[in-house]
Simulated scan of single mutants.
Amino acid sequence: MQIPEIKPDRFKKLFLDNKFVLFLLTLLLIGLNIFVLNKIPFVFKPFIVLVKTVILPLILTGVVYYLLNPIVDLLEKRKMKRVYSIITLYILIIAVVTLLILAVIPVINVQVMELVKNFPTYSQQVQLNFESWIGGSLFNQIQQTTGFNSTDWNNTITERLSSFISLAGASIGSFLGVVTETLLAIAVVPFILFYLLKEGHRLPNFILEFLPPSFRSQTYEVMSEMNHQISSYIRGQIIVSFCIGFLLYIGYLIIGLKYSLILAIIAAFTSIVPYLGPVIAITPALIVAAVTSPVMLLKMIVIWTIVQLIEGKFISPQIMGKSLKIHPITIIFVILTAGNLFGLTGIILAVPGYAVLKVIVSHIYHWFRKRSGFYNTFQ
């Protein structure tokens, strides 16, 4: 008598023995647990408070770490002990900061106060200049055609400024709270930075010890690529922004533009955001130049165009290169989306965050393609 062959269970074959299906089921269970626990406030609230407390010091420390770590590595290669290298670098930074406070901050303070004091009259001055440039009759015709009333517009601006000042006065407590948190974060940075510069090179191996041996090589590759992407972007973008600010300051001094130092500093800081930063930075310079004279406005546009050409053709290709390999359109959409989700912090961290996410997703995709075997039939 022939014993009938027992066929394997189709459910077990299709689901239980399928690693991809088990992976999806695991993700589903993790998501359900997070969703349920999120409905209980006291479960995630301490974690959220912890993240909000440490995120700013960690971000600031990370930025300074990527700027200073190559210098410490270079000094260590020159036979100087790492601790002594860090202490020497700290002394140099304290000297530079002291020099800036004594020499540069007073000039910035004078220009900022003067700019704030004169800003309410700029709207009316720009209107008068514009009317004189195009002629009074043509300006009146434009007003009649468009329904634009300069008096009502000035009154509206005054009302908006008054409302803004009242709102600022009402929320002065929250503003002071933000300033206090920022100052505390900055005060903590040197202590975290010291230990990160001293022991940071051991951190990858420390993390790998918690992983199974089979995952360590690929995880180390992912961390190395993430580190390269972040370091290249932070160092490159800050150097490029500094060069833009320096060149604009020289150009503004040559043409005699008022508030040249503060306008160049604004341009340097806003240039940290790719593509969108220069558009924001040129606005105050345009207003100041337009108030001064049409010739000054033309000179300012020429200086800005020259600096942007130098930055786009010479500085960025040499410093940034093609390390991120992200299309400009993608960068713009990423910045806009991150800004809507997370505000100013999202705008600043959008590009490096996207670069890190791209590295992780790319490695997961290649790992899935290699393990699944779905693509072998097409090769």
Rank of each mutant, 00 (worst) to 15 (best):
F20E: 14
R216Y: 02
Q144H: 10
L261G: 00
I6V: 07
I101W: 13
Q141S: 13
D9G: 10
A185W: 03
Q127P: 05
I331A: 14
F148V: 05
T151V: 07
L67K: 09
I335L: 04
T283G: 10
Q379I: 13
V43W: 05
S132G: 11
L208T: 04
K325M: 14
F130H: 07
F210T: 01
Q111D: 02
G277P: 03
S150C: 12
E159C: 12
I239Y: 08
A281C: 00
S241I: 01
P57Y: 05
Q379R: 13
N154C: 12
Y220M: 14
L56C: 12
P328N: 04
G251Y: 06
A290G: 01
I86S: 00
F191C: 12
L24Q: 05
L68S: 10
L22P: 10
E5L: 11
L32A: 08
F194H: 01
I48V: 08
L196D: 01
P41C: 02
T26G: 14
K39N: 09
F206Q: 15
E209A: 07
N38L: 06
H327R: 03
T88L: 11
V178G: 07
K7T: 12
I157P: 07
L193E: 01
S166F: 14
S162P: 15
N227R: 12
T180Y: 09
I87P: 00
V51K: 05
Y220T: 13
P46V: 01
P294F: 02
A267V: 03
M320L: 12
N18C: 09
L211R: 02
L16T: 15
G200A: 02
T219A: 15
I165T: 13
I207T: 03
Y66G: 12
